[in-house]
Design a binder for these strands. Structure first.
Length: 685
DNA sequence: ATAGGGTTAG
């Protein structure tokens, strides 16, 4: 009698088990399991389901599977739990086998069965199978069930079928935040931020209260388009709804401020979060990196390491990208070492970031190595490598890789074509480039964007076919933007074509009257064509409009610090030595045929009156300093904010020969590799 | 049930 009194009922045991499951308390759960066996209630359907759920939630899938195989088969819960278990492992084939088997055994899937299998389809990208299951959902009458539909919406939205997701949401008769949020975040995931916000607004207008995740998604959508004020408003709304302390909203806010370049506010929001997780940190790091505050991003990354926090794939991806954008070779390599140590080098996205990092830092060989050693590649990997080759002027390598990409069945996208078209342009492969441009729409179903038209204009005009380029612009189906006109004007300067050049400049000055580069290009074009009156007029116009030329600046990293040089500056502590060595180099260069280009200083509208022997371009200073300070086994890496002028280009070729050194210059446009008196661009740039 | 970070170009 007493024993009977003490024996807990099955429902109590099951709820204890599920408490263990949600807290990951496997030991306590196992004790309960022994008790269950002793008490003879192990075949109770509720207890049985709770036990299986315990092992699945504690990731002991093996024990769970064994239990499942010996249990009674008429309990649908067991099948559902197993679907979740294999879903956790992204094991779709086993999930699907169970899904089919349960129906063969005569069991009817319920509102928990469909979400479990559909989530697995979503996560492994098996949309076709998901669609089949969708058909069955309709047949079995679950098409109005919010649990099932929210997962269907999520699946279609995540895979870009936003119209289908939208239709499912519209057919729902019940108001459901989760279904709405699934669609809203789906739009955001495909960069349709305005559409996401539109639906968020509509949801509220319909009187559906948002939850924390809805607010978080909406704020993230604002972050995506740098809509600072709208994001703040939504934050205020979330405050009213009582979600002010929520982690997901806090993280979204950090990301919003960081991506809007509001460094201080981002830190402030970050500090407000009590239990910061890796996403909080990463919101700062990636947000700073994306808004161009790469130094800050790297600082936060270092801070995170000092706090002994484990960085994730995401964090490493962001940090490498930050190092790439500012070409911080040293820190980037340190991060790479950490990545290897932590075994994250097997992650595709991290490797993709590394390819870009090495390419942007001028080490195309290291980029290639990273690319070749990847066990698995995706489209971004190919794009990063093709673009890297292109930026370094290795047009043929870029084209070959593009052909190989198609051969292995990887689909080229818009980015691929920007890379391959600019690669053709860099080496003058006009016919080939035009063929690729044609193939974009004809073979790959891609609609060319302004950037692609700009590439084609560059391709044609740089090769000297200026009238043809002009005709192409006039006949193309989109409105030409400033980039396109600038490209044309730049080519007209190279080819001394005043007529087309004036035409381009006219449009460019209308679109961007404040851009100093236009005036500089135009006055150079007049100068090289001997039209001095026109050149003077252009300068006068520039002065009248108060437009200032961006000063040329070059920088080089020596012994962990960056040394920056402006045109003709003597600010460096070693200035005397640098100028002395420079004179020596000039003398040696002249002995083997270097002649200063008389147009070289025409770029420098303001300072043309000055003595050209004093007035030295910044890249010459940086390279001279590099030769003085670096051991002669390492290549000289120099970055420049503007394009290298013709005179400096020729000078560097001579210097690479005299000094027997590899000199790699990254200018505003591309990389130049100088070695043994020649440049990788083959003087075509 | 629904999210919040990374990678490619111009």
């Amino acid at each position: 009698m007493k024993r009977e009194y003490l024996k807990p009922d099955c429902v109590t045991v099951a709820s204890l088990l599920s408490a263990c499951a949600s807290n990951g308390a496997l030991c306590k759960g196992e004790q309960l399991h022994s008790y269950v066996i002793k008490a003879g209630i192990s075949s109770d359907m509720i207890v049985e389901g709770a036990l299986l759920d315990l092992y699945v939630n504690c990731s002991d899938i093996k024990t769970a599977h064994e239990m499942f195989l010996t249990a009674q088969t008429e309990n649908v819960v067991l099948w559902n739990v197993m679907l979740v278990a294999f879903g956790k492992l992204d094991n779709l084939s086993e999930s699907f086998r169970i899904f089919r088997q349960m129906q063969i055994e005569g069991l009817i899937p319920n509102q928990f069965t469909y979400p479990s299998i559909l989530r697995t389809c979503t996560s492994v990208g098996a949309l076709d199978l998901g669609e089949q299951i969708h058909t069955q959902v309709i047949k079995t009458g679950f098409q109005f069930n919010v649990y099932v539909c929210s997962v269907l919406i999520d699946m279609y939205a995540k895979h870009g079928k936003l119209d289908t997701a939208h239709v499912i949401l519209r057919t729902l008769t019940e108001d459901d935040v989760v279904s709405w949020t699934a669609l809203i975040s789906g739009y955001a995931q495909h960069n349709l931020f305005a559409e996401a916000l539109k639906h968020f607004k509509e949801m509220l207008n319909r009187g559906i209260q948002s939850d924390n995740i809805g607010f978080s998604s909406a704020i993230s959508a604002c972050a995506g388009i740098q809509a600072l004020n709208q994001g703040r408003q939504i934050h205020a709304q979330s405050y009213v709804s009582g979600y002010s302390e929520d982690l997901s909203i806090g993280n979204a806010l950090v990301s919003l401020y960081a991506r809007c370049g509001r460094i201080k506010e981002a830190y402030l929001e970050f500090e407000k979060i009590d239990a910061k997780d890796s996403i909080s940190w990463n919101g700062l790091i990636s947000g700073f990196a994306q808004s161009g505050y790469c130094e800050d991003a790297l600082k936060v990354f270092a801070q995170m390491n000092r706090a002994k926090l484990e960085a994730s794939f995401f964090t490493f991806g962001s940090a490498v990208s930050a190092a790439a954008n500012i070409a911080n070779i040293k820190q980037g390599k340190q991060i790479h070492a950490m990545i290897i140590k932590r075994g994250f080098d097997s992650d595709i996205e991290v490797s993709n970031a590394l390819i870009t990092f090495y390419a942007k830092c001028g080490s195309i060989e290291d980029a290639r190595k990273e690319f070749c050693e990847m066990p698995e590649k995706n489209d971004v990997s190919w794009n990063a490598m093709i673009t890297g080759y292109s930026q370094h002027g290795y047009g043929n390598e870029a084209v070959n890789l593009f052909e190989k990409m198609k051969q292995v069945g990887e689909m080229p996208n818009h980015v691929t074509f920007v890379g391959v078209l600019s690669a053709c342009s860099h080496v003058g492969l006009v016919t080939k480039g035009l063929g690729y441009f044609e193939s974009m729409s004809k073979e790959h179903g891609l609609v060319p964007k302004p950037a692609h038209y700009a590439c084609v204009v560059d391709l044609i005009s740089r090769a000297g076919f200026l009238s043809r380029a002009r005709k192409f612009i006039e006949e193309m189906p989109i409105e030409p933007d400033a980039t396109i006109w600038r490209t044309l004007l730049s080519a007209c300067t190279v080819h001394k074509n005043v007529e087309v050049g004036e035409f381009a400049a006219h449009h460019l000055l209308e679109l961007e009257p404040e851009d100093s580069a236009t005036y500089v290009l135009l006055s150079n074009m007049y100068a090289v064509s001997g039209k001095w009156d026109c050149r003077d007029q252009t300068r006068q116009m520039m002065r009248n409009r108060g437009v200032k030329k961006e000063p040329g600046r070059s920088w080089i990293e020596v012994k962990n610090s960056v040394h920056a040089f402006y045109v003709g500056d003597r600010l460096h502590p070693l200035a005397d030595k640098i100028y002395e060595f420079l004179a020596e180099l000039n003398k040696k260069a002249a002995e083997i045929g270097y002649v200063q280009d008389r147009y070289s200083l025409l770029n420098d509208v303001e300072q043309e009156q000055k003595d050209p022997t004093v007035y030295i371009h910044s890249e010459k200073l940086a390279i001279t300093f590099g030769l003085l300070s670096l051991s002669d086994t390492v290549p000289i890496h120099v970055m420049k904010n503007l394009r290298v002028c013709k005179d400096c280009h020729s000078w560097i070729k001579f210097v690479s020969k005299i000094s027997n050194r590899a000199i790699i210059v990254r200018d505003a446009y591309r990389f130049h590799h100088f070695e043994g008196g020649i440049c990788s661009c083959k003087d075509y740039w």
